[in-house]
Design a protein around this nucleic acid. Sequence first.
DNA 1: TTCGTGATGTGACATATCTCACTTTAAATT
DNA 2: AATTTAAAGTGAGATATGTCACATCACGAA
Lengths: 187, 187
Amino acid sequence: MRANLREHIEKIIPLTDEEFAFICTHFSTKKFKKHQFLIQKGDPVKYCYFVISGLLKLVYTDDSAKEHIVSFAMEDWWESDYYAFFTQTEATMSLECLEDTEVLCFSLDDYKKMCDGLQKMERFFLEKANFGFLGSQRRIISWLTSNSKERYEQLLKQSPSLIQRVPKSLIASYLGISRETLSRLSS
Amino acid sequence: MRANLREHIEKIIPLTDEEFAFICTHFSTKKFKKHQFLIQKGDPVKYCYFVISGLLKLVYTDDSAKEHIVSFAMEDWWESDYYAFFTQTEATMSLECLEDTEVLCFSLDDYKKMCDGLQKMERFFLEKANFGFLGSQRRIISWLTSNSKERYEQLLKQSPSLIQRVPKSLIASYLGISRETLSRLSS
DNA sequence: TTCGTGATGTGACATATCTCACTTTAAATT
DNA sequence: AATTTAAAGTGAGATATGTCACATCACGAA
C-alpha cells in the first residue's frame, strides 16, 4: 500500500530502501467512508493527504452557502487546504469523500522533518509544488481562452475517468457553470 | 540593486554574506525598454526573471490571435514561462515590458546549481512555489465564487497600484472580461 | 417491492456579457 | 504645437449563461 507512495516519489527521484523507510516513519494511514470529511471548514488543518484509493473533493463554501469545487483528488494525488496547513490556521475549505477513500498523510511537523532530514524529499516537494502551480496556471489559461463547452471538452480529454466517477453537477461546479448549462452543452 | 534580491530572499530565509555572494554569481542583470520582449512565443526560454523595477505582462495568445493576460509582474515579483523554462521547451507565452524594466535573471543550469550548492536556496524556491500555487488557487476561487464586478473590486483592493499603472483593457483581459464590460462596471 | 433521494434533462424567462460601431479623451511622437 | 496613436466610454443588438420550475430516471434503504 505504501508501494504506491514509493512508486509515486520515484517517478521524480530514486530512493534507497533506507531513505524510503525514513520517509515512511512520517506517514500514517487513514480510511474514510463516502461522505466523511477529512477537513472541515473552520477546523485546524492537521494533515496533508496522499490518496491511495478513492476520490475526494476540495470545496469552498461561499457566504451564501453555495459550494464550489476547487479540485478533485483521486489515486496518486495530494490534497489539503494548503494555506491553512502551511500557516496552521483554520480551514477555509472542506475536504470530503466522494467514495470510500484510503489515504496516507503527514503533519506539518513531519513535513519539516522530512525536508530537513532528506534533501531528496525537499526536492520532491519542490517539483510537486512547481507542477501544482503550473496546473493551476493552465486552468486559469483555459478559463481565459475558452468557453464552457471547450473547457468541458478539455477536462473530458484530460481526465476522462473523473467524469465517470463524479456527478455532473460537481463537474459543473468545478468548471464554474451551472449544472443546467453543463447538461445543455452535451446536446 | 542586488540589495532588492537579498532583502527579498531574507524575508523567507536569512543569509550570510558568503551565501549571498554565492547566489549572486548565478544571477545576471538585464535592462529592457517598454514594448520589448523578454520572452517571445515559440522561442526557447533561457531565463527566469526577478523584477527590480518596471512592469511586465505575461501573455497567452490564442489561436485567433487574441491576447490574454496570464499575469503581471512588478517590483519583487518573479516571472517566466515556467513550463517552458523548466522543461526547456519553446515558449507558449510571451513576456513583454509595459514599462522600462530592470531585471535579474538566472538560467535553468544556474537554478540547479543554486539548489544543489545551497540548501537554503532550494528551501526558498520551495516556499515561493508553494505561495505561487496558493496565489493561483486563490484566483481560481475568486473566479468560481464572484462575478466580474466583485473580481475587479478584489483586484483593486489587492493590487491598487497595478490599476494605476496598467491600461484598463489589460486589466479586463486579466479578469477574463471585455474592456467594454469592465468600463461599464464602474458606472 | 416500495419509497425516498439524488442525478439528470429541459422549457421559459431574466440577466450578464460580448461584439461591433462610433465618439471622446488622453498620451505619445514628431 | 501639431499630429498621430492609444485608451476609455457608450449605445444597440446578439449570444451565453443563470435561475426557477417541473419531469424523469436510477439506485439504495427500509
